[in-house]
Every structure is written in C-alpha cells, then in structure tokens.
C-alpha cells in the first residue's frame, strides 16, 4: 500500500489551514500497547539502509518506558512512501551512563520517543 499524495498545488487557504492546524500524525490500532509505563525495554540493534527515526546512539540499549504516547503513523515506512503502519509510540528514558558510559553524569537521563518496531521486551 504505497502512500499516494494529491499532487495539487497548495492554495493560500490550504497553507493557512496547515499553518493553523498542522497535520495530525495519529493513527488507529486495534491492539493494546505492548508496554506500560515502568516496563524495561531494549532497543533493537538494526541498521536499515532506508529511513529510520531510531538513532544509532540508542540502539541496543536498556531503557524504561516513561509514558505511552498513543498510536501514530510510522515515519520509518512513511519516509519511503510504503505504508502508514500505525503503531504505539512510547517515551523511553535512558540513563546517561547506559548510553555514554561512566564518564556521563550518574544523575542525567535522555528521553526519546520510540515506536513498537524499535523496541524489544527484556
């Protein structure tokens, strides 16, 4: 299911609408979220040659679900016009030392929004 676009010239009215309302990126899923706040997760180790919003510095790391953000369309497939592939997005917390080793501050954390397809249960 490739993503089709209207290929219409954007009118002033449409631009004004977009400026004021933006684009709703939420999607719908019949499934419950795989993870809940507090769950420990590990990010996948993957190196797709195509588009992904899973940065290298968090791949293969242990984190904790901070919040379930809801269902959104999946950028990794949208970027290639393949499919909307809606799925849950979770805000995931990583200790700075998990990402950067003992030189990082023991207090500091990184929060990042990751999709079902980026995460494994531990």
């Amino acid at each position: 299911m490739a993503i089709e676009t209207s290929n219409e010239c954007m009118t002033v009215a449409h631009a004004q609408y977009l400026l004021q309302n933006g684009v709703d990126c939420r999607g719908v899923s019949d499934d419950p979220p795989q993870f809940q706040a507090g769950d420990r997760v590990r990010t996948k180790v993957m190196h797709p040659i195509t588009y992904t919003r899973l940065p290298r510095y968090v791949r293969g790391k242990m984190g904790t679900i901070a919040k379930v953000n809801g269902v959104y369309v999946f950028p990794d497939t949208m970027g290639q016009r393949l499919a909307t592939k809606p799925q849950y997005v979770y805000n995931v917390r990583f200790a700075a030392q998990e990402l950067w080793g003992p030189d990082a501050s023991p207090r500091d954390c990184l929060y990042i929004d990751l999709f079902d397809d980026h995460l494994d249960a531990t």
């Binding site: 676009t5 290929n7 684009v23 970027g79 016009r81």
Partner: peptide, 18 residues
C-alpha cells in the same frame, strides 16, 4: 512547505536530505 503533504510526506523530505 508548499509541497509538504500535497506532493511529499514530511518524512520523505527528511529522508531526502539524509
């Protein structure tokens, strides 16, 4: 901006710059 959505999904433009 004027080609966002109507011609190219925003993620396609991000990927294009990458």
């Amino acid at each position: 901006f004027a080609t966002f959505c109507n011609f190219f999904p925003v993620d396609e433009t991000r990927h294009a710059s990458e």
